[in-house]
Amino acid sequence: MRNIRAKTFLMVGALGLLVLHLCKDFIDHKTIRLHVDVRENNNQIRKPTKNNSYVFFWPKCQQNISAANISGFSSLPIPIKDFLYYRHCRHFPMLLDLPDKCGGADKSADVFLLLVIKSSPGNYDRREVLRKTWAKERLHNGVWIRRIFVSGTSGSGFEKERLNKILELEQQEYHDILQWDFSDTFYNLTLKQILFLEWMERNCPNARFLLNGDDDVFANTDNMVVYLQSLKDNDGSKHLFTGHLIQNVGPIRSSGSKYYIPVQVQESNSYPSYCGGGGFLLSGYTALVIYNMSLSITILPIDDVYMGMCLAKAGLSPSSHMGVKTAGLYIPSSTLDGYDPCYYKDVLLVHRFLPHQMYLMWHRIHDPTLKCSPSTKRH
């Protein structure tokens, strides 16, 4: 009887080892991957990727068909209709993640200036130039500057696959892209902001300051560090939100405008004070306040206005900084060179540069032989 039991025990043990071996082969197989899913709040699923980081998967957000019952809905432009159908959607599958970008949540205070750059998948040339110029990750004046591009998806079918592959290849080389599976359109810029802020709360909550801007701005990030270090009473733990201040305006009701907002999207005829979305500086404290306020504010497709709405709800105000020129730079005469580096050497940010202009300007303002007269230093 003992021999039978011993043989049985050995057979069971051998079978167990065989099963474990087969399971290991199954898990390691490149074409068949077994994931242990971790269920998060609101049905969020956290899954490990090939490099053992994690990306976040959400159930597909369903269209709100009742939006079609809104008065005047049928006469609205298609982009507005699509916005209203999916206005309630705030979570989308994450395609590219950077969970350790800030050294982990606990070490994120080491990031002094986090560059958060909105970029569509097809803007490869812009991202490449920024990586070599003002968005280069570096230690400046003793503090760290880090870079993140925030993107959705563009196109459909094979075109979408190709553009996603471009971002995937960039991610492998630079590790600087956050991407979610939502349509990267003008009316989804606010969604892009909210998704980033949610990511920041989870992965980079203690970053001191942020530059939030477009990929076509020229940003003098060296000057930004100097300015932010001059704020002796604010290390990022107090309110700061500054840029090109816009006040006493309201929704544009003309359907031909890029910024068209019909009453079906917002009834109020006024906007709170806000800073132009081309680029603005804010503290880490303020970024997280905005995120918390956004949880209870209906999405408005104009992202910079929406940030102002979140500030207003928190009882905070944006401020003006003369060095932020999101409406462009004033050149005193048409006979002067509008790209004279002396006009740009002392500013913080100017909106709308082409990639080659960006590359040239960055190197020209850092030319040690550059000589500027007082009249060209700031306008």
Results as ranks from 00 to 15, higher is better:
residue 3 N to K: 13
residue 4 I to R: 09
residue 8 T to C: 15
residue 10 L to Y: 01
residue 22 L to F: 12
residue 26 F to H: 10
residue 39 R to S: 12
residue 44 Q to T: 14
residue 55 V to M: 07
residue 55 V to A: 08
residue 58 W to I: 10
residue 59 P to D: 07
residue 61 C to Y: 09
residue 67 A to E: 14
residue 67 A to P: 06
residue 69 N to C: 08
residue 72 G to D: 13
residue 73 F to S: 02
residue 74 S to A: 13
residue 76 L to K: 00
residue 77 P to C: 03
residue 79 P to W: 02
residue 81 K to T: 12
residue 82 D to E: 15
residue 85 Y to N: 08
residue 86 Y to A: 02
residue 91 H to C: 11
residue 97 D to W: 10
residue 102 C to A: 14
residue 104 G to E: 04
residue 107 K to T: 08
residue 110 D to F: 00
residue 112 F to W: 03
residue 112 F to D: 00
residue 115 L to H: 06
residue 117 I to Q: 02
residue 124 Y to L: 12
residue 129 V to L: 00
residue 141 N to P: 02
residue 146 R to E: 11
residue 146 R to D: 07
residue 152 G to A: 09
residue 153 T to E: 08
residue 154 S to D: 03
residue 163 L to H: 01
residue 164 N to F: 10
residue 170 E to Q: 03
residue 171 Q to E: 04
residue 171 Q to T: 03
residue 172 Q to C: 08
residue 175 H to F: 04
residue 181 D to H: 05
residue 189 L to E: 06
residue 191 L to T: 07
residue 196 F to I: 05
residue 211 L to Q: 05
residue 213 G to C: 11
residue 215 D to Y: 01
residue 217 V to G: 00
residue 223 N to S: 04
residue 225 V to E: 01
residue 228 L to Y: 03
residue 232 K to Q: 07
residue 232 K to H: 04
residue 234 N to W: 05
residue 236 G to L: 03
residue 237 S to H: 11
residue 242 T to Q: 06
residue 243 G to C: 04
residue 244 H to Y: 11
residue 244 H to L: 11
residue 252 I to Q: 14
residue 255 S to F: 05
residue 257 S to V: 00
residue 257 S to Q: 02
residue 257 S to D: 02
residue 258 K to R: 15
residue 259 Y to L: 05
residue 259 Y to I: 05
residue 259 Y to A: 09
residue 263 V to M: 10
residue 264 Q to C: 09
residue 265 V to L: 06
residue 268 S to G: 03
residue 278 G to R: 05
residue 280 F to C: 01
residue 285 Y to P: 11
residue 286 T to S: 12
residue 288 L to S: 13
residue 291 Y to C: 13
residue 294 S to F: 09
residue 296 S to E: 15
residue 297 I to D: 07
residue 299 I to C: 15
residue 304 D to H: 04
residue 313 K to I: 07
residue 318 P to Y: 06
residue 321 H to F: 08
residue 323 G to K: 00
residue 330 Y to K: 14
residue 332 P to M: 08
residue 348 L to W: 00
residue 351 H to N: 11
residue 358 M to A: 04
residue 364 R to G: 07
residue 366 H to Y: 11
residue 366 H to N: 13
residue 368 P to H: 14
residue 369 T to N: 11
residue 374 P to Y: 01
residue 375 S to Y: 06
